[in-house]
């Protein structure tokens, strides 16, 4: 999309205050926090009364590793699909 009639809204202040997410330390802290929460979620599992629907989802930490692996597989499958279907942006224009 080109610069359209909306572009009058786009402005860059000469000097702007730094935003909290610009600080890599804070971003790192968020990532460590996520890791900690993930670890906690697996650790509390034995305390929770599980009622698995099938056999596989009763395995310890099933949803955790399933979520991680499936996510990675989806992203790589997407990359593979891109090889097949990606075309230049103006493909349908001519």
């Amino acid at each position: 999309m080109t610069q359209s009639d909306h572009s009058q809204h786009v402005k860059r202040p000469a000097a702007e205050e730094s935003h909290w997410l610009d600080d890599p330390k804070i971003v790192n802290r968020i990532v460590y926090g996520l890791c900690a929460v993930c670890a906690l979620l697996v650790l509390v599992e034995p305390l929770v009364h599980r009622h698995a629907h099938f056999e596989a989802d009763g395995i310890f930490g099933f949803n955790a590793w399933f979520g991680f692996i499936v996510f990675v597989v989806i992203v790589f499958s997407g990359r593979a699909l891109r090889l097949l279907v990606k075309r230049p942006e103006d493909y349908y224009d001519h």
Partner: peptide
Amino acid sequence: LQLLLFAALAFVFLVRVRLYPPEIPSVNL
């Protein structure tokens, strides 16, 4: 929460090791 947050963890991991596919202006068939 396990499913979703570990998926989020996978995202963070892929972005950090630069394996997450970059956004490219394109048309997908």
